[in-house]
């Protein structure tokens, strides 16, 4: 018998497979947090609705049932699934273009109906998959391939704050913004994701977790600089914390 103690092991809900994500990309971290939360909650039969965005292949990295939605339609697809399979955990995983641009209608209405689903919103302030175009969450002054001199508020408005928007609706039971740019925040992110999934398991209703995330590739930064940029630029505009945690 060795004295070694296992302090970390790969989540059984994750596949033994390398992801296609760029170095320093936080999509993989968020996947891991979802997988660990499901493990800890004893959920083996969750269904993940994949977005159109860099995380479109999420179902290839996790041992789950997966349904791939059209761009922005994940909350509607999740609604359809959950209304049939009310005892399964249904997760809608979405990027900022998906959730706040093309799919804003689906986002707001699924939240407003209070669908008993969990929405994980990965806000990386850019369109990752299509090569770095401006997103609804792109920061003022941030250069993207379609805002080459930096996002100009006079022309295109200011970034949309998703948690605050959803917080205007009555039905959601849980709304929290977290970040995963460093260890301490990743731990908080995990807690929020787990709570959001637990709420669903307990039938409480709609839970929304926004995760501030990085896209070093399209931000044109090294991973380290990307984490710093997130902390210095995004967090002041997108305050972290809980917006709602309703006991029902």
């Amino acid at each position: 018998m060795s004295n070694e103690e296992i302090v970390y092991k790969k989540s059984p809900s994750m596949m033994e497979r390398e992801t296609h994500y760029c170095p320093g990309c936080t999509h993989g971290v968020v996947h891991k947090l979802i997988a660990e939360s499901l493990d800890e909650l004893g959920v083996e039969d969750a269904i993940v609705v994949a977005p159109v965005g860099c995380a479109v292949l999420i179902y290839d990295y996790m041992k789950l049932d997966g349904v791939e939605a059209a761009h922005g339609r994940a909350p509607a697809v999740a609604t359809g699934i959950k209304r049939v399979l009310s005892d399964k955990i249904v997760i809608s995983y979405q990027g900022d273009g998906d959730l706040l641009a093309i799919g804003l209608g689906e986002t707001i209405h699924a939240a407003n109906r209070g669908e008993n689903i969990t929405v994980i919103f990965v806000n990386n302030a850019i369109y990752g998959m299509t090569g770095g175009q401006m997103a609804p969450t792109t920061m003022p002054g941030q250069k993207t391939t379609t805002s080459q001199s930096g996002r100009m508020a006079d022309d295109v408005g200011l970034p949309i704050r998703a948690c605050e928007l959803i917080n205007t609706l009555e039905k959601p039971v849980y709304i929290e913004r977290v970040s995963c740019h460093n260890g301490a925040n990743i731990l908080k992110a995990k807690k929020a994701i787990k709570k959001a999934l637990l709420n669903q398991k307990e039938g409480k209703g709609y839970s929304f977790v926004e995760v501030l995330a990085t896209c070093p590739t399209n931000w044109g930064l090294t991973p380290k600089k990307a984490y710093d940029w997130l902390e210095d630029t995004m967090i002041p505009y997108y305050p972290l914390g809980n917006f709602r945690d309703q006991e029902v």
Binding site: V49, V67, A69, A70, R73, A76, V77, A78, T79, G80, I81, K82, R83, V84, L85, G105, E106, I108, H109, R113
Partner: peptide
Amino acid sequence: FIQAESETAAINMVFGASST
């Protein structure tokens, strides 16, 4: 029965239900 927010949402709800 769900009165969807649009026809786009409605057909995607069908997509979800049908996938089960």
